[in-house]
């Protein structure tokens, strides 16, 4: 298997790992966002709590949760490694750089956006994953939905979530189509479609997630 390790440790291999783990996280976000969006049914969290309950006890979902954490850690580890490696390739910086002339700022800032995301994720996991999985605070009368209502009374928390979603949106705006390029899928037939889907996906995911804390904070849902 030395041949596989060698391939995955090359500059191309490290990116392949980013693309595969990134696309996996992208597929997870669809489910996460879809389930959470049930709060907008404004049914006092009934549908949401049922979904959360199902997720918490289904063995397949619980297994996928472990795979998800593994994938996320790989993505973070590989991303930080690439970021630090790449920085070393230009020891003397340019005095003048006109980056806007040839590329999008967010495509050049994936490491920064990823780090902001990581900080947000730590806070986010503490708020809900830690609360629901590792403490006994979850009861019939204090559901995950009720916990959201409590957490999102703080304007600072709401601001952090909105910033997290903006970082996510830009990370995905570049990352979605970038992952397909890394996989070698670049063709005039379908690349424009991939780019369009990537942009729509990024905007919908970021906007939908950001709307959740905002809706609670302004009591738009009960």
């Amino acid at each position: 298997m030395a041949w596989l390790a060698k391939s995955l440790n090359s500059s191309l291999g490290k990116k392949l790992l980013m693309a595969i783990t990134g696309l996996f996280l992208i597929s997870f976000l669809v489910i996460h966002c879809g389930l959470n969006a049930t709060i907008f049914l404004n049914d006092g969290g009934k549908a949401f709590n049922e979904g959360a309950e199902f997720m918490a006890h289904n063995p397949i979902i619980r297994t996928m949760e472990i795979v998800l954490f593994g994938g996320l850690l790989l993505h973070i580890f590989d991303g930080l490694r690439l970021w630090l490696d790449n920085k070393k390739k230009r020891p003397v910086a340019y005095a003048v750089v006109d980056g806007a002339a040839n590329s999008k700022w967010y495509s050049r800032s994936m490491g920064l956006l990823g780090t902001l995301l990581l900080l947000f994720l730590i806070i986010h996991l503490k708020h809900f994953w830690y609360f629901s999985r590792l403490t006994n605070n979850l009861t019939e009368t204090h559901t995950l939905y009720n916990e959201m209502q409590v957490v999102f009374t703080s304007p600072i928390v709401v601001a952090i979530y909105v910033l997290g979603c903006i970082s996510l949106g830009y990370h995905l705006l570049h990352g979605f189509q970038s992952a397909f390029q890394t996989l070698g899928w670049n063709h005039p037939k379908y690349t424009p479609t991939i780019k369009a889907i990537g942009a729509i996906y990024s905007i919908i995911i970021a906007a939908a997630f950001a709307a959740m804390p905002i809706a609670f904070y302004f009591n738009l849902i009960q």
Partner: peptide, 8 residues
């Protein structure tokens, strides 16, 4: 370095 697909 590696490729970040910035397109620059």
């Amino acid at each position: 370095g590696a490729c970040s697909n910035t397109g620059a």
